[in-house]
Amino acid sequence: MPTPLLQVDDVSLEYADGARIVRATHRVSFDVHEADRFVLLGPSGCGKSTLLKAVAGFIAPREGQIRLDGKAVQGPGPDRVVVFQEFDQLAPWKTVRQNVVFGLRAAGRISRADAIARADDALSRVGLIEFADAYPHTLSGGMKQRVAIARALAMQPRVLLMDEPFAALDALTRQRMQGLLLELAEQLRFTLLFVTHSIEEALVVGTRVLLLSPHPGQVRAELNAHQFDATSGASVAFQQATQRIHRLLFETPVEAAEPTPLRARQEATP
């Protein structure tokens, strides 16, 4: 097996809640390889978003280590770009194109002309080049998320991090955005770490899905989802996989939730 691009080894994360220290995750381990679409799935409060922030470098692990390309993650960097759920990720005083260009220029890696060319290419891929000179307040929620995705892809990160990016969208727009993300992944072969609490979205978006127990998040199982895509929702196999994941997440006894080594956890969906 090739060396994983991203390695999360026995990571425990904590945060302050008033006078208390709360453990968000407990000894979570997983590997993400090049071009994986890896999904962290679990109920609210299981620490999946906290894990994503730790991979982004915003939070330091209490225990364990996170490595990218074999090197310990010490803080944020342009090799990891995050797309959040909120629609206010864009600077309202900048045009769509300027929002995409800003990240590239702030990283100080390319000239203005090259940044504009890369921004326009990214906007074309998400179907928004005609809105390059528009301002964020004129866009719908789905369009704003497409701009956020374009901005992230233009950075050409080693890992694209997405924290429930479609959760606030209506059902139809959410489905279209999932389809767009899969198309972009096919075209660009980027590596994705995606957080969701939707079982159906995890199976559609992911090639691999890590199930986390309720608080504090511990690994329940790791499943393959290569066989599913945006058209799989009505299939018997998809419904069976959904039901199985629900049982693993919510019906497994707490005492059985102690994480086991990664190789022992890997299993295929029916």
Score class of each variant (00 low, 15 high):
Glu34Ser: 14
Gln187Tyr: 00
Ser111Pro: 10
Val28Glu: 08
Leu41Thr: 11
Ser198Glu: 03
Met143Thr: 04
Phe194Glu: 09
Gln145Asn: 09
Leu128Asp: 10
Glu258Phe: 01
Leu68Ile: 08
Asp36Ser: 08
Leu51Met: 15
Arg263His: 13
Met143Gln: 15
Cys46Thr: 07
Thr242Cys: 14
Trp93Ala: 12
Pro76Ser: 07
Val11Met: 04
Arg146Phe: 10
Met155Gly: 01
Val22Phe: 06
Ile129Phe: 13
Val254Trp: 02
Val32Tyr: 05
Met1Asp: 08
Asp17Ala: 14
Gly64Leu: 10
Arg27Met: 07
Asp170Thr: 08
His215Thr: 12
Gln266Glu: 13
Ala54Gly: 03
Gly141Tyr: 11
Leu51Asp: 05
Phe87His: 13
Gly45Trp: 10
Val236Pro: 00
Thr252Phe: 01
Ile245Trp: 00
Leu128Phe: 01
Val39Lys: 09
Arg220Pro: 00
Ala72Cys: 05
Phe228Lys: 12
Arg265Gly: 13
Leu212Val: 07
Gln227Ala: 15
Ser232Leu: 10
Ala106Gly: 01
Arg118Lys: 15
Leu51Trp: 02
Gly45Glu: 08
Glu222Ala: 08
Ile129Trp: 14
Arg247Pro: 00
Lys71Leu: 13
Leu249Ile: 14
Leu223Ile: 14
Gly108Ile: 03
Ala152Phe: 13
Ile21Asn: 06
Val159Lys: 02
Arg265Thr: 11
His197Met: 00
Arg105Cys: 01
Ile66Leu: 10
Tyr15Phe: 15
Val8Gly: 04
Gln227Trp: 04
Gly141Lys: 13
Ala168Asp: 12
Gly64Glu: 11
Met162Trp: 08
Val55Trp: 07
Ile116Lys: 14
Arg151Asp: 06
Glu86Phe: 13
Ser235Trp: 08
Ala54Met: 08
Ala221Tyr: 03
Thr269Met: 15
Leu51His: 05
Leu128Asn: 07
Glu201Asn: 03
